[in-house]
């Protein structure tokens, strides 16, 4: 049995510490240890993006990262995106444009949209589609998702800002 490792990860501004097996995936640290179940497990094989979170400001798939690799880093999950009960403008835009059906892919989609708009505040439709190309929606509701992201971008201002 390999040595367990002590890891400390800051999630949505709060520190979580645990002794874990090195093979524990970040997504299971988030869901099982931090009890933040907004991050979903879809394919568990780096294809679908349902487990997308931000680590130090960039999107990553938390099923394809060991918790030990995230030691000392800052994670943003969907639970940290809304502030004080107010939806983030991207979330509001998803709501306004009916950009979720079953909702399973939504947390990952929102994080990918957030990352995209932080890099490209005024993306073209093609850039939006490429920006969420690592996220699959099995309801195939892509059109409304793309519309929602484009509309959020048009609002301008600090839409791509990360919640602090």
């Amino acid at each position: 049995m390999p040595d367990r490792k002590r890891v400390e990860i800051k999630i949505n501004g709060e520190s979580y510490s645990a002794e874990v097996e090195p093979r524990l995936l970040l997504v299971d640290f988030l869901r099982g240890i931090a009890r933040l179940t907004g991050t979903h497990v879809g394919c568990d094989s780096s294809n679908c993006g349902a487990c997308t979170v931000m680590m130090d400001g960039v999107t990553v798939k938390s099923c394809t990262l060991f918790a030990v690799q995230a030691n000392g880093r800052e994670i943003l999950t969907i639970e940290g995106v809304a502030k004080d009960g107010d939806l983030h403008p991207i979330q509001q835009s998803f709501r306004d444009h009916h950009a979720l059906q079953c909702g399973y892919c939504t947390p990952g989609m929102v994080l990918s949209a957030l990352f995209l708009l932080s890099k490209k505040p005024n993306p073209t439709e093609r850039e939006v589609r490429l920006g969420v190309s690592g996220n699959l929606c099995r309801c195939t509701g892509y059109q409304n998702i793309v519309d929602a992201i484009l509309a959020a971008a048009k609002r301008g201002g600090q839409v791509g800002r990360r919640p602090t």
Binding site: F115, S133, G134
Partner: peptide, 8 residues
């Protein structure tokens, strides 16, 4: 890959 893969 995709944006997430390219970030890591």
């Amino acid at each position: 890959g995709d944006p997430q893969v390219r970030n890591l």
